[in-house]
Write a protein that binds this DNA or RNA. Structure first.
Ligand SMILES: Nc1nc2c(ncn2[C@H]2C[C@H](O)[C@@H](COP(=O)(O)OP(=O)(O)OP(=O)(O)O)O2)c(=O)[nH]1
Ligand SMILES: [Mg+2]
Ligand SMILES: [Mg+2]
Ligand SMILES: [Zn+2]
Length: 577
DNA sequence: GCCGTTTTCGGCCCGACTGTTTTCAGTCG
């Protein structure tokens, strides 16, 4: 088993143990171990071979043994046993809002049912109502929950949640009495997808804020409402949580509601170790007393001996350790982006001419554009024949001459990596490009070994500057193809080939978790909108968010470099061929 | 199940909301 499969197995064990009523701290140990295995730098087989698994904090003797079996044999009798004791359908039930492990187990044991369909029928037949600890209300909540489960994936892309968040923010900011309002949660942390929109408001008078929030025309249903908190489901699919507190608590609540959960736990543990208690209202001495006053989040971090930690980094993936060592990176930001690489034009499947794409870039303050249309194998996308490549280069020469140095268009290409790992043009053509993005657009179903070899071969090709959308994933729609991504990223770093962060909100590929690992091994990236129209250029900000989550500095992103530096880099790669 | 310069046992983040509860468990954030 590879690391992702091992992580999935551990996480499954945790869930199954929960359903069996195990000690919550024990089940969390499995969840933590899964996260750790997924995110660690080290090579899993090597750790197993050397017997060093339990040197990882959070993995002891028992987990080390189980992980070793999973890696070596690809299976684990303990897991098989748990699976035999818990019907698989119960895992689906857990995704219904309001049903947790205790209730799921109680229903299953009392009624002897275990599938979603059976649960639905049991509700329709009023079988749940009379069970101990249940009633009409709890039964009534289940059917709509099942419906919603079937309607959508439960997670949503950045453009959807960001737009909803902006509208809700505007709405609450307009309510009389509101002093401050901010978006929090995974939207603020710039996660690739979000379950919901989390909003924090400071006001001395919560009632009207919650009232107007709940009455918004974006809202489909109110799912919870108390004195400080209101939860709704939006018509567009995601839910939204509003938390209203007084002005003094606001920074603490923003920090709490921004999360992540694991970051919060780490911060609260750190506070405990310092004899303090941290919650969404303040930071108070353990044995009572007033909260330490903190005017903003930075002051809270500072009170715990930490520098400000950017929201994107708050995933409990080493940010507290790095912060306390003074080793947090200065993250790349929108204003660092100097130019745009990887865009399409009407020469292939884009909707705008090269000239229009270039002016769109200029208007946005960028100083260069790397046009990279599709290559000939991508016939469905109007891929360019060698003759068309030459024609396109003549057009770019003419445009550049007109631009007279005020802006530069680079002759790029998004060349297909063919099934055998070769590139889609002969070397004579490849040698003519200023910039080469190489991508997989076909044969997604190769075995992991073959797909990995195919891409490694492309990385060995001296004409390749950037590897495009390395896993081919489409968020919420298509899984990545089978690939040893760690090996590919390491190889790219060694060969000084950049790996793109494709900024299209459905891709965001390379994933930020793997970007972080790669950057620690010297990888370069490029934040590329893969735009097919002028509006598509604006997607670059989604990529910047993901790059930030991957701990990326401007030094590590090609298109955060001024043109001369980028050209030097490209030139050096070309003289090394 | 993991962990440890106050501990190898007794902690493990902390609080809001709901429903069924007659004092709180379960779920969720
Ligand atoms: N302290 C603490 N905070 C939590 C816990 N669960 C959630 N939070 C905080 C941190 C989360 O970022 C924030 C919002 O919760 P959400 O369930 O909306 O998660 P988040 O927005 O991080 O991700 P998602 O909505 O799933 O995309 O609430 C918890 O168990 N303990
Ligand atoms: Mg959220
Ligand atoms: Mg939420
Ligand atoms: Zn592509």
């Amino acid at each position: 088993m590879n690391r992702n499969e091992v992580a999935a197995a551990l996480s499954e064990i945790g869930t199954l143990l929960e359903l069996l009523g195990e000690n919550p701290f024990k089940t969390r140990a499995y969840g933590n171990a899964a996260r750790l295995i997924k995110s660690m730098d080290q090579d899993l087989p090597t750790l197993v071979e050397k017997g060093e698994l339990d040197s990882l904090k959070g993995i002891g003797k028992a987990l080390a043994e189980k992980i070793t079996l999973l890696v070596r044999d690809g299976r684990l009798p303990y897991l098989d046993e748990l699976r035999a004791r818990v019907p698989p359908g119960l895992l689906d039930w857990l995704r219904i809002p309001g049903l947790g492990p205790k209730k799921v187990r109680a229903i299953h044991l009392a009624l002897g049912i275990s599938t979603l369909g059976e649960l639905e029928y049991a509700c329709q037949e009023n079988r749940l109502r009379d069970l101990d600890g249940f009633g009409q209300a709890s039964q009534d909540k289940i059917l709509p929950g099942i419906d919603r489960l079937r309607r959508n994936a439960g997670r949503f892309l950045q453009p959807v949640v960001q737009q909803e968040a902006d509208r809700l923010l505007e709405l609450v900011r307009g309510v009389p009495g509101v002093i401050r309002a901010e978006v929090a949660g995974s939207v603020r942390r710039r996660s690739e997808t979000s379950k919901d929109i989390d909003i924090v408001v400071a006001s001395p008078d919560p009632e009207p804020v919650m009232e107007q929030f709940a009455a918004s025309d974006q809202v489909e249903e109110i799912t919870g409402r108390g004195p400080t908190k209101c939860s709704v489901v939006l018509k567009s699919g995601p839910s939204a949580d509003l938390r209203v507190v007084d002005e003094l608590s606001f920074p603490f609540t923003v920090m709490y509601f921004t999360g992540s959960k694991d970051h919060n736990i780490a911060m609260r543990s750190r506070a405990r170790a310092a004899g303090l208690k941290l919650n969404e209202y303040g930071l108070v001495p353990e044995n009572g007393g007033d909260s330490l006053p903190c005017a903003d989040e930075a002051a809270i971090y500072s009170a715990l001996d930490l520098p400000y930690i950017e929201p994107e980094l708050r995933e409990d993936l080493g940010e507290l350790e790095a912060g306390s060592q003074g080793e947090l990176p200065a993250l790349v930001s929108d204003s660092d982006i100097c130019g745009i690489l990887h865009c399409h034009s009407t020469w292939s499947d884009g909707s705008a001419s090269i000239a229009d794409m270039a002016s769109a870039c200029r208007e946005r303050g960028y100083t260069y554009l790397g046009i990279s249309d599709h290559s000939q194998a991508a016939s469905y996308a109007g891929g360019l024949s060698p003759a068309q490549v030459l024609e396109q280069h003549e057009e770019i020469d003419r445009l550049n001459a007109d631009l007279n140095g005020t802006f530069t268009i680079l002759k790029g290409i998004e060349v297909d990596i063919l099934a055998d790992g070769k590139l889609d043009y002969p070397d004579e053509i490849m040698a003519r490009f200023d910039l080469v993005v190489a991508s997989v657009h076909s044969r997604f179903n190769l075995s992991e070994q073959d797909q990995t070899d195919r891409i490694l071969k492309a990385l060995d090709n001296p004409f390749v500057d950037i590897l495009g959308h390395p896993t081919g994933r489409l968020l919420l729609a298509r899984e990545p193809y089978a690939l040893d991504l760690r090996t590919v990223v390491r190889a790219a770093a060694e060969r000084n080939v950049a790996v793109e962060v494709n900024a299209h909100p459905s891709r965001l590929d390379l994933d930020w978790r793997e970007l972080a690992v790669g950057l620690r091994h010297g990888l370069l990236t490029s934040i590329n909108p893969d735009a097919h129209s002028p509006a598509g250029i604006d997607h670059v900000r989604h990529g910047v968010g993901i790059a930030r989550k991957g701990w990326c500095t401007p030094e590590q992103a090609l298109n955060a470099w001024p043109l001369p530096r980028l050209q030097d880099w490209l030139k050096e790669r070309r003289t090394g061929r």
